[in-house]
């Protein structure tokens, strides 16, 4: 709880500020519709963030997430509509490809000792390239079909006793992913081992931790969740262009994980932190849209600045704590 307190406070402050500013501008923010929208937009980035958190905890990184969203998202739409595969086969294929890509990344990183940055950078280029290849750069989309499947992203669940607000299905799916991820990380032997190897791989290995297998597993989890996020994304927007689908998603996800307390040095991070980090980023984007509609171009500046301030504050707090602790123990 202590570790996510900072980000939680920051989120609440930005939330209140947005509400106040929106009220002043006469813009709509606290309405059910806007809140639903916010939650819906948190889901795909949140799932990506949770996935990349596993990789960041091992001390790695995954830059290919945006292209994974493109490959799986556009790929699913293309297979269903242009190729005409049945849903079950398409989804199985999506899962298989996602897992295989994670396995590919993890194996190159652990067995060949290649830097994660480079491996996944190549992935970033390749998966988008593949998608543009098989679609011949044509937009893929559902048109008016597949409304049933699209309920995964478009659907809403009524909340008892609340009027004018319904819980978006993708947000619920993200929460389920988050809970499972948190349990894995905090309550299982594998999760503990993952934390240990992120802090000190050599010491973990000498204590009998299967460091290679666990690192590969982290990349598989990351890619599978990226595929899932890609699926939810395409189901929500309905059609996408291979050249732009998922652009920058990896950076939002990594930013969310870092805001949520994952250190790029590895070994730290909480799932709750990542979720709140994602919510903060999407809140900032929404704030700009609603409150400063004419300054849309400032979006990246805002997100970048908040991230930087967060990281600086975190580092300063960490140093102060370390100093106090050292003084106490001696």
């Amino acid at each position: 709880m202590k570790r996510i307190l900072g980000i939680l406070v920051l989120f609440i402050l930005v939330y209140i500020a947005t509400a106040v500013m929106a009220a002043n501008e006469g813009a709509e923010f606290l309405s059910g519709f806007t809140q639903e929208n916010l939650l819906r937009r948190v889901a795909p980035i949140g799932i990506l963030g949770i996935g990349v958190a596993f990789v960041i905890i091992t001390g790695g990184i995954d830059l290919s997430l945006g292209s994974m969203v493109c490959l799986i998202g556009v790929g699913v739409a293309w297979l269903l509509t242009d190729v005409g595969w049945p849903i079950w086969l398409t989804l199985s294929m999506a899962l298989l490809v996602s897992a295989a890509i994670g396995l590919f990344h993890g194996t190159l990183i652990t067995k060949l000792n290649l830097p994660p940055f480079v491996v996944t950078l190549c992935g970033l280029l390749m998966y988008r390239g593949i998608t543009r290849g098989f679609t011949q750069d044509q937009t893929a989309g559902f048109g008016t079909e597949f409304t049933g499947l699209r309920q995964l992203s478009k659907g809403e669940i009524p909340v008892p006793f609340v009027e004018g607000f319904q819980m978006p299905v993708p947000f619920v799916l993200m929460l389920v992913v988050a809970v499972i991820a948190a349990i894995f990380l905090n309550k299982t032997v594998a999760g503990r081992h993952l934390m240990a190897l992120g802090n000190n791989e050599e010491a973990a290995r000498l204590s009998g931790v299967r460091t290679t297998a666990l690192t590969i597993l982290a990349y598989v989890i990351c890619s599978v969740l990226a595929g899932f996020a890609g699926l939810l994304h395409i189901l929500e927007v309905g059609l996408e262009q291979p050249a732009t689908a998922g652009n920058f998603f990896e950076l939002f996800a990594i930013a969310a994980a870092v805001l949520g307390g994952c250190s790029l040095r590895g070994g730290t991070g909480t799932i709750a932190g990542v979720v709140i980090g994602t919510a903060l980023i999407q809140l900032l984007r929404q704030m700009i849209t609603i409150v400063f509609p004419r300054q849309q171009s400032m979006e990246y500046l805002m997100i970048g600045a908040v991230l930087l301030v967060g990281v600086i504050a975190d580092e300063l707090v960490r140093r102060a704590v370390a100093k106090r602790r050292a003084a106490r123990i001696g």
């Binding site: 503990r192 934390m195 240990a196 802090n199 000190n200 050599e202 010491a203 973990a204 000498l206 204590s207 931790v209 070994g267 730290t268």
Partner: peptide, 15 residues
């Protein structure tokens, strides 16, 4: 090689 320095005494003892 011996310790996960950023983890607690308990977590190191049980690793």
């Amino acid at each position: 090689q011996g310790l996960v320095l950023e983890m607690a005494v308990r977590e190191n003892l049980s690793l």
